[in-house]
């Protein structure tokens, strides 16, 4: 009988977790989590997902006018071997003259031209690599604008939120390039990002929950 009780308990927990996840997704997709429910005075621990080339430039443009005293410390997460982005972030932080930041490099989930079969394993590896990272940082805010590296990080912190371990706000900004269609990251994060910004009114028309606040670039 003991065993049956254990199974029933496991099922109950699974149902509760699922209900919690569905509740969060519902809250997010109906726009009820767009604004913080309470006033904040302490700085927020911020994770910034850095992609490649154009994505990096866009992200740094968006961040240029942020008050870094409020968004601190900042953790820039990027793929290993992306030396250009690394240099860009370094230079950006130098101009802001705040030192409370860290650049964290994670293994790439897929290299351009890599086969799909092997990329399953490398993706799994990069996901596993991200788990302790996100658990350790427990960010208050994740900023991301497209690159694939942001997906595992966002999903892990979403699960932590579902488990009441951390309270992370995910802000996704669809790339300036996207005027008519969503990126793959956008299609996934539609369901998980608390704030979903688009840069063109034409894209806002395609997704009711998206927000267009004006010209950002």
């Amino acid at each position: 009988m003991e065993d049956q009780l254990k199974i029933e308990l496991a099922i109950l927990i699974a149902v509760l977790i699922l209900a919690r996840i569905l509740y969060l997704v519902h809250k997010i997709t109906t726009g009820f989590s767009r604004e913080a429910s309470s006033k904040r005075v302490t700085p927020c621990r911020t994770v910034i997902c850095i992609g490649s080339g154009g994505h990096t430039t866009e992200m740094l443009t968006l961040m240029a006018s942020l008050d870094f005293a409020k968004y601190s410390p900042r953790y820039y997460i990027m793929a290993k071997t992306d030396t250009t982005s690394y240099a860009k972030v370094r230079k950006f932080e130098e101009t802001k003259n705040h030192s409370n930041y860290e650049i964290i490099e994670i293994p790439r989930s897929r290299v351009v031209g890599q086969s799909y079969i092997t990329s399953i394993f490398t993706t799994l590896y990069s996901i596993l690599y991200s788990v302790p990272l996100v658990c350790k940082i427990r960010p208050d805010l994740i900023l991301c604008n497209g690159p694939g590296t942001c997906i595992p990080i966002c999903l892990i912190s979403f699960l932590l939120k579902a488990a009441f371990i951390s309270d992370t706000r995910i802000v996704f900004i669809e790339s300036f390039c996207r005027t008519e269609t969503f990126s793959l990251s956008g299609k996934i994060l539609m369901y998980f990002a608390d704030n979903f910004l688009v840069q063109w009114p034409s894209l806002k028309q395609k997704l009711k929950r998206a927000e267009y606040i004006g010209q950002l670039m």
């Binding site: 767009r34 704030n195 910004l197």
Partner: peptide, 9 residues
């Protein structure tokens, strides 16, 4: 926009 989302004054 971000300040408003995060609940900053």
């Amino acid at each position: 926009y971000l300040d408003k989302c995060m609940g900053f004054e």
